[in-house]
Amino acid sequence: MPSFVLGDATDALDPPSADVMLRLIVELLPLAGIVLIGRHPGSAEIFSRRLTLERAADGDILLNEVYARRQAAKAPRPRLLSVIDWLREGYGR
């Protein structure tokens, strides 16, 4: 059975168009599992199941770790000594 994950696939659509798009997918792929991530502007009745994620009280710890990793990745890294610089410095000293 094929599965599809649609990230923010219907966010930019008006509610009727979002519902039509999902109904077409369901009709064309009746055995497929479809996970829609984002805010669906259309009718909630189109879905057979709904999962709502809520932030845990201690969830900010994870967010702080993610922020710290992103900041570390943005920090300038020391430039490796290129062959040209190495030759300029005199490689035989």
Rank of each mutant, 00 (worst) to 15 (best):
V83R: 13
V26W: 02
F47S: 02
L29N: 06
F4D: 03
R77S: 07
G92Y: 14
D14M: 11
R39G: 04
A75I: 00
P2C: 06
K74G: 03
G42F: 01
R23A: 15
L31R: 07
R77P: 00
R79D: 13
T10I: 10
L24S: 07
G33H: 11
R79M: 09
P2F: 12
G90R: 03
S48R: 13
P15N: 02
V35F: 05
H40G: 05
I25D: 03
A56R: 14
L22H: 01
P30S: 03
R88F: 12
G38K: 01
G7M: 09
A68W: 01
E45Y: 08
R70W: 06
I84M: 09
A56V: 03
S48P: 04
D19R: 03
A44L: 11
Y67A: 06
S17G: 07
L31C: 02
R70F: 13
A56H: 04
D58Y: 04
L31G: 13
M21W: 12
Y91A: 12
R70Q: 11
P78M: 00
R93L: 08
D85W: 15
R39W: 12
L28S: 05
L81W: 13
R69M: 12
V20E: 15
L51K: 05
V20A: 11
G90I: 07
G33M: 11
D19Q: 01
P16V: 04
L36R: 01
L81H: 03
P15H: 13
L36W: 05
D11S: 15
L51R: 08
